[in-house]
Design a binder for these strands. Sequence first.
DNA 1: CCAATAAACGACTTTTTTGTCGTTTATTGG
DNA 2: CCAATAAACGACAAAAAAGTCGTTTATTGG
Lengths: 144, 144
Amino acid sequence: MFSKTCEYGIRAMIFIAQKSNAGNRTGIKEIAKAIDAPEHFIGKILLGLSRAGIVKSFKGPTGGFFLDDDLKQCSLADIVKAIDGDKIFLGCGLGLKNCNEKKPCPIHYEFKKIRDGIYDMLQNARVSEFSANLEKHLTFLNRK
Amino acid sequence: MFSKTCEYGIRAMIFIAQKSNAGNRTGIKEIAKAIDAPEHFIGKILLGLSRAGIVKSFKGPTGGFFLDDDLKQCSLADIVKAIDGDKIFLGCGLGLKNCNEKKPCPIHYEFKKIRDGIYDMLQNARVSEFSANLEKHLTFLNRK
DNA sequence: CCAATAAACGACTTTTTTGTCGTTTATTGG
DNA sequence: CCAATAAACGACAAAAAAGTCGTTTATTGG
């Protein structure tokens, strides 16, 4: 569904949002441990998201990643777009470049429903809405 | 969503079904041209599907690929399972190995709806149901 | 039997994705 | 100012996916 990069990215953002909601910044090491991802790799991913303006950071001691109030409203769709682009929202299910309403592939309309469902879900899910359940250990971000 | 291999595989199967419905076999060259895919690559993919028992073939002149009456009932889900496995139907949206009802990721339940929707759609779509619209040029399998 | 045809098969190459490493730059607190 | 800290950055390495090539095997029709 999503690339691994994107999966890590979403998990990292949800974790950063949780920390930000509690008023804290968090560093690459802490994030990597929390979401069970390779440290250097999420560093690279967060660099990309930072450049995309989806996360803020400061260098040095007391530095780290965080979301300001605007960014807390960031949706999962925004993250996916920044990492994987919009092909999951717009692309043809059978990989056809010129598939569209005028020249649809055999599953075009059925597939559109799926894609729209994915988009709605991701668009309505904001990174910061998951903090409460994570705090209560009702949901998890790591694989162990 | 699907791997390229899988996209080619589904397109090839739909094309083979169309030919089979018309009572004909079709060869790798013809398939490759019809669905706009690399010839050798399609050969490799069909070899896999043939081993999985999802398509039949004969060698030699008058040979080629075809579906017998049983195989015409094959669903797109069967093809996806044979090529990409079942991770799209069962896997966690955030890539977590041990994500489940007891230890769900933050988007587990929302994502389950999506996955179930994909499964239902693919399960209910049979390869041979697309022939009529393809014949009428209402739908297409190539990118040009 | 033979030549032509077409799938089967294995080995290989290329490209993309994923992941790693070492260095540089910015910031902080002492 | 300085040592410690942490993100930024670029280059590289490994693994997986996508795609290619040449040869072999089976089948057909003449």
